[in-house]
Amino acid sequence: MTDHDEVGDVRPLALAWVSRHLEVGERVVRAEALYGGITAEMRRLTIGTRDGGTRELVLRTFVDPFYVGYAEDWLSRETGALNLLAGTGVPAPGLVAVDPAAAHCEYPSLLMTHLEGRTVLDDEGLETRLSLLARQLVAIHAVRPIERPREYVALTTPESVVVPEGADEGVWAAAIDVIRRPAPPYEGRFLHRDFQPGNVLFDVPPTGAADARISGVVDWAATSWGPADLDVAHCATTLALLHGPAWGLRFADAYEEAGGALAADASERKYWLVRDGLAASEEVGEVAQVWRKAGRTELTTRVVEERLDAYVTALMETPG
């Protein structure tokens, strides 16, 4: 049983599939679109319970034809990650059901528990959140799976880098030369692979940002095995584009201060930071659009490109 006026934007087959995974006497009473993701639609589902109360689940649906092609692999990895993380202390959603090949739903889908909190992309309170992000990433890297996820996949190649308009071509050419080198050897870690503020939920009490805490980490579809430096580099790049290059440059230090271990050699650290920074050049427009929808209206594609250029330039000026 459902309240159709409130859940009309949930596709019929998906709604029926969700309903089959509810407890006896429960029903979907409301659906609300969640914003912030690039690859999939997200909806918060309010479930009416037998005792007259409610609980919430989240439905993740891959609809875009480009991403549908990857959905089965991504959802299989996310399922494995959520099962692995249950009971570890890492605040990840709980798995309810998955339909990776769209055998039951219109599109590949994942049903999971809802975590309290919200993404916070504002500049205010960033000092506190930086330390929280670093400590949470150290905890993720401390997970020791019995069965390793697949090895990480590089997100860019020297040939696919998009040099921003007006950037110093010499600097960018030198940066591209950095990632032409073979990847340095590394001690493998369990990686989120897309750990960044858009995939972290915060509980920010009325007392303010100083008392904020992380309430959840979401989007485990890219879970991989690889160097801790790679997760650190990805979060650093996002911080640089979202808040300014200086914040990206600070994140590696925050990670080490939280107890994390990075490559001992400066040139190896630089390799991973530059690699992820260059990877961002291919999706600046999409990222800027997501952030504007989330309220950061000043972050036009051009502004984000300029921040990326400044960040890559700063990386190339560091030793290594």
Results as ranks from 00 to 15, higher is better:
residue 184 P to N: 12
residue 184 P to W: 08
residue 184 P to D: 14
residue 184 P to A: 08
residue 185 P to H: 08
residue 185 P to N: 07
residue 186 Y to T: 00
residue 186 Y to W: 09
residue 186 Y to G: 03
residue 186 Y to K: 05
residue 186 Y to D: 01
residue 186 Y to P: 03
residue 186 Y to F: 09
residue 187 E to P: 06
residue 187 E to F: 05
residue 187 E to D: 14
residue 187 E to W: 05
residue 188 G to K: 04
residue 188 G to R: 04
residue 188 G to E: 03
residue 188 G to V: 03
residue 189 R to T: 00
residue 189 R to Y: 00
residue 189 R to H: 05
residue 189 R to W: 01
residue 189 R to L: 03
residue 189 R to P: 00
residue 190 F to N: 07
residue 191 L to E: 12
residue 191 L to S: 11
residue 191 L to C: 14
residue 191 L to K: 09
residue 191 L to T: 10
residue 191 L to P: 12
residue 192 H to N: 04
residue 193 R to V: 02
residue 193 R to K: 11
residue 193 R to H: 05
residue 193 R to Q: 06
residue 193 R to F: 06
residue 194 D to I: 08
residue 194 D to M: 08
residue 194 D to V: 06
residue 195 F to G: 04
residue 195 F to R: 13
residue 196 Q to T: 04
residue 196 Q to A: 10
residue 196 Q to R: 11
residue 197 P to V: 04
residue 197 P to S: 05
residue 197 P to G: 04
residue 198 G to R: 05
residue 199 N to K: 01
residue 199 N to F: 04
residue 199 N to H: 01
residue 200 V to W: 00
residue 200 V to M: 01
residue 200 V to Y: 00
residue 200 V to A: 02
residue 201 L to Q: 00
residue 201 L to S: 00
residue 201 L to P: 00
residue 202 F to Q: 02
residue 202 F to L: 03
residue 202 F to Y: 09
residue 202 F to N: 02
residue 202 F to M: 03
residue 203 D to N: 10
residue 203 D to M: 08
residue 203 D to S: 11
residue 204 V to R: 00
residue 204 V to L: 02
residue 204 V to T: 03
residue 204 V to N: 02
residue 204 V to A: 01
residue 205 P to H: 12
residue 205 P to K: 11
residue 206 P to M: 07
residue 206 P to V: 09
residue 206 P to Q: 13
residue 206 P to K: 08
residue 206 P to D: 15
residue 206 P to I: 09
residue 206 P to E: 11
residue 206 P to H: 11
residue 207 T to Y: 10
residue 207 T to V: 08
residue 207 T to K: 13
residue 207 T to N: 15
residue 208 G to S: 10
residue 209 A to R: 07
residue 209 A to M: 15
residue 210 A to S: 14
residue 210 A to P: 12
residue 210 A to L: 14
residue 210 A to C: 11
residue 211 D to H: 15
residue 211 D to M: 14
residue 211 D to I: 13
residue 212 A to V: 10
residue 212 A to I: 08
residue 212 A to N: 11
residue 213 R to E: 15
residue 214 I to D: 09
residue 214 I to E: 10
residue 214 I to K: 10
residue 214 I to P: 08
residue 215 S to G: 11
residue 215 S to F: 07
residue 215 S to D: 12
residue 215 S to A: 14
residue 216 G to H: 11
residue 216 G to L: 15
residue 216 G to K: 13
residue 216 G to R: 13
residue 216 G to D: 13
residue 216 G to M: 15
residue 216 G to N: 12
